[in-house]
Amino acid sequence: MSRVVSARDAEWPRRLSELGPYPPPGRMFVEGSRLPPDDALVVAIVGTRRPTSTGLRAAQELASDLCEAGVVVVSGLAVGIDAAAHRAALEASGRTVAVLGCGLDVDYPHRNLRLKQRLARSGTLVSEYPDGVQPARHHFPRRNRIIAGLSDGVVVVEGAITSGALVTARLALDCNREVFAVPGSVRNPMAQGPNELIRTSLAALVTSAADILEELAPGLAAVSSPPTFTEPLALSFEEEALLRALDDVPLSLEHICSSAQLEPGAAAAALSRLELRALVERTLAGYSRAAPRR
């Protein structure tokens, strides 16, 4: 069952009343554990609904490392980066808050129904909208201001130039919050958003949770886990050439063959060996580099 929390309640985070130029919400509908207290460190992880595997892996790692350091992870329960961040936070037994653009009882997005149920049990679901309100296009920018408002900083993992994740980043800047961006390949359209934020100096470039903690809470940074040792990969000449030719976005075998200067049969065979070692992913759209596992 959801409860109503307003500015008069002890649970109300002061941050929500400090939205800069934007109107603070009058009250919030909350389900699950209590909203992050004012002394907690809160980071929002936002990004595209259609991430690459590298983007997904980045969101997971950031969320899980931030949770290990005691940070509350906020996101929007959308498919893609949002869901990956929530899941990783739950896996790491961390605190996570999902801000919805519809009533708390509305099943949206349907794909994340199970995740939403888990969040209601071990996380927090928040919405400005009363029960029964369906999601609408104009709800999401309003919802994004709450994501920004609840957090000390916002990390954009992947997103197109026109994406909602970039809207959240701008709202966060307006509300005087820190903005971080994870850079990506120039060939990945989903990395254009964060790359642009970095290029225009609106966001700080981050590649790990430690980078974020250093900025927000220098004392905490040492807590994060040290990088683990990875064994060097034994690769043939062909496999190395192929890995260099691959990218985060799927490419057709033809493009890969021509940039790696390999015969199609040999290239196909080498790619399937790399796929067997989980270094390459194959989908109907083509081959892409799989994010390295830790």
């Binding site: 609904r49 259609r50 991430p51 595997s53 997904l56 498919v79 893609g80 869901a83 990956a84 799927p250 075998l253 049969g265 040999a266 196909a268 065979a269 080498a270 790619l271 399937s272 060996r273 796929e275 067997l276 194959r282 989908t283 109907l284 759209a285």
Partner: peptide
């Protein structure tokens, strides 16, 4: 093994977003 590798590369591909 080389023939098997190439044959494997033509098998039915997975759908994207299965992980998302």
């Amino acid at each position: 093994s080389e023939h098997v590798s190439e044959a494997l590369s033509y098998r039915r591909a997975a759908t994207e977003g299965a992980a998302a």
